[in-house]
Computed example of a mutant assay.
Amino acid sequence: MDCAKSHLLRRGRFSQPSGIYLLTTVTNNRQRTFTDLWSARAVISELRQTEREDACQSLAWVLMPDHLHWLIQLKESTLCTVMRRFKSRSSHALYKQGLPRQRVWQPGYQDCALRKEDDILRVARYVICNPLRAGLVSRIGDYPHWDAVWV
Rank of each mutant, 00 (worst) to 15 (best):
H69P: 01
P107R: 11
Q97I: 07
R122E: 11
I140L: 08
L74D: 02
R30H: 11
H92K: 13
W70G: 00
D54A: 08
I120N: 02
M1R: 06
L79F: 06
L94N: 01
C112P: 02
Q110R: 15
D66H: 03
E53Y: 08
Q16M: 12
S138G: 06
T35H: 15
R133K: 13
D2N: 13
D118C: 12
T25L: 15
Q31V: 15
E51K: 08
L114A: 12
D111L: 06
H69T: 01
K116Q: 05
Q16W: 13
D119K: 07
Q49H: 04
P65E: 04
V43N: 04
C3L: 15
Y95R: 07
A148L: 04
V149T: 12
W38E: 13
I20G: 00
A113R: 14
I140D: 03
Q106P: 06
I44K: 02
W150A: 00
R122S: 10
G141S: 07
W70Q: 01
S39D: 10
G135Q: 15
L59T: 05
R84G: 07
A40E: 07
F86M: 12
W150P: 00
R48V: 06
I140V: 11
S18R: 10
R41G: 01
D142N: 13
A134T: 04
D147V: 00
Q106M: 06
A148W: 01
A134D: 11
Y21P: 00
G12C: 10
E46T: 06
R133L: 09
A40F: 07
L121V: 07
L63K: 02
S88W: 12
G135H: 15
M83C: 04
Y95W: 15
R48W: 03
A134P: 03
H92P: 04
Y109M: 05
W146I: 01
Q31G: 14
D111H: 09
D111E: 10
Q16E: 13
V127A: 00
R32W: 07
I20M: 08
L9A: 14
R115Q: 08
V26C: 08
K87I: 11
C56Q: 09
L121F: 05
A60N: 00
L74N: 02
G141H: 02
G108S: 09
S91E: 10
I140M: 08
N29E: 14
V137M: 08
W150H: 00
R101Y: 05
C56I: 08
A40H: 11
R52N: 12
R101G: 02
S138W: 05
A148V: 03
H92Q: 12
Q73H: 09
K5T: 09
R84I: 08
S15G: 05
H7G: 11
P144F: 11
R115G: 08
V62Q: 00
L74K: 02
M64I: 03
S6I: 11
R48E: 09
E76W: 14
I128W: 00
M83N: 03
E53G: 02
A42N: 07
K5E: 07
K75M: 09
I72H: 02
V62C: 03
P144N: 09
V123R: 03
I128H: 01
W70M: 01
R89W: 13
P131F: 01
A113G: 12
R133C: 05
K75P: 09
G141C: 03
Y126K: 02
A55Y: 10
R84H: 11
V43Q: 03
F14L: 15
H145Q: 14
H67P: 03
R139G: 06
T33W: 13
A40K: 06
E46Y: 07
V137N: 08
L8F: 11
